[in-house]
């Protein structure tokens, strides 16, 4: 049975574009601009939805209702919030570092979207399949770290500075276990390309990497812990620990600039979940339903997991956070990588 795949719609759109008789440099330019606009639109909608979902889940975890006023169970609450933030005054502190203060939210926002160039949303639904895909994602998270450092420095505020430094220290530390747990997957798929990784998990559900015992589940658990830290979420949200740092790196930001940090945070959460699905849950592989729906559904389930973390666990102390990363996660992930590589070498896998 032919499934309704978005790639057919895209190839139809591409044919339509070609039929207008556009020459080559412009054809690529228009194609990529359209792709960028579509990606931006889709991700903005996803981020807005995640904000609403987070509020609903937090409310139900705490036996409240959450937003209920705007539409069915408050479904357009976040849209109203976004409109409100757009109209707000852009408060600019006098002693800020003008150049750094201005560019920090911009870089944060752009960096959040950069990873989506290589994320396969479905069968044939990928902007560019680099043969170094997963490494590319690791590289672009660097810019998020830099933007947080810039925000902390540019605000000229001790809380912001502390928040920015904490977040950078945390992201740099947790990047190592994250890469080490991803490497186990790469050892098995034999490729850094996201499409190849997904295709190596096709077929049965037991081909999904999470079911590759015993290292698969360990790699997933270490990945999801490190990813929670990378996305600066509870229990690793020290950069914005309210009772210590008021709001952390974004304390001096208001209006649209704050909205950019806020949206980037939710886009980042979706990114780490999408990577988890691609690496461990077979990406777009599924039955009957279109592949992009499988991908979206699986990703939203991982997002749900991250959200439940947030509303179940208390925040770590900063020294505990560092100790956990360096004394527990790093040795564990490296041992897991060694075991995984040994199993691969001996051929003890399916």
């Amino acid at each position: 049975m032919e499934r309704l795949e978005l790639k057919h719609i895209f190839s139809w759109l591409h044919d339509l574009l070609v039929s207008t008789g556009l020459g080559e440099p412009w054809l690529s330019v228009v194609t990529y601009l359209m792709l960028g606009a579509m990606m931006f639109g889709a991700l903005s909608v996803i981020a807005l939805f995640l904000v609403w979902w987070e509020r609903k889940i937090s409310a139900h975890v705490q036996q409240r209702f959450g937003p209920m006023r705007n539409g069915w169970h408050g479904w357009y609450q976040t849209i109203m919030d976004a409109i409100k933030l757009l109209q707000k005054e852009d408060v600019r502190v006098t002693n800020r570092d003008k150049f750094v203060f201005f560019w920090a939210p911009v870089i944060c926002f752009v960096a959040a979207f950069l990873a989506y160039i290589v994320i396969p949303f479905g069968d044939g639904l990928i902007v560019a399949d680099f043969n170094i895909g997963i490494l590319y994602i690791m590289a672009v998270t660097t810019f998020t770290i830099i933007s947080l450092l810039m925000a902390g420095w540019g605000s000229n505020n001790k809380y912001a500075l502390l928040g920015g430094m904490r977040s950078a220290a945390q992201m740099v530390s947790y990047e190592i276990p994250m890469v080490a747990s991803i490497l186990v997957v790469i050892v098995y798929s034999g490729s850094l390309s996201m499409v190849d990784i997904v295709e190596s998990q096709s077929g049965m559900i037991f081909n999904w990497f999470i079911f590759k015992l015993p290292f698969g589940p360990i790699a997933f658990i270490t990945y999801i812990i490190a990813a929670t830290a990378e996305a600066n979420r509870v229990p690793f949200d020290l950069p914005e620990a309210e009772h210590e740092l008021v709001a952390g790196f974004n304390i001096e930001y208001s209006g649209m600039k704050f909205a950019m940090f806020f949206l980037a945070e939710f886009v980042n959460m979706f990114t780490v979940s999408a990577i988890a699905v691609t690496l461990f849950f077979g990406g777009w592989n599924g039955w009957l339903l279109p592949s992009w729906l499988w991908f979206l559904g699986k990703t939203l389930l991982v997002v749900l997991l991250l959200m439940l973390f947030r509303w179940s666990y208390p925040r770590l102390r900063v020294d505990q956070l560092m100790e956990f990363a360096w004394k527990f996660l790093v040795p564990l992930t490296f041992a897991n990588l060694l075991v995984g590589a040994a199993f691969k070498y001996l051929g003890w896998y399916w």
């Binding site: 660097t142 770290i145 830099i146 450092l149 420095w153 920015g164 430094m165 220290a169 740099v172």
Partner: peptide
């Protein structure tokens, strides 16, 4: 990601 971030840390 590593060298320049380290420099910024030193400055901060």
């Amino acid at each position: 990601g590593a060298v320049s971030v380290l420099m910024i840390f030193a400055i901060m």
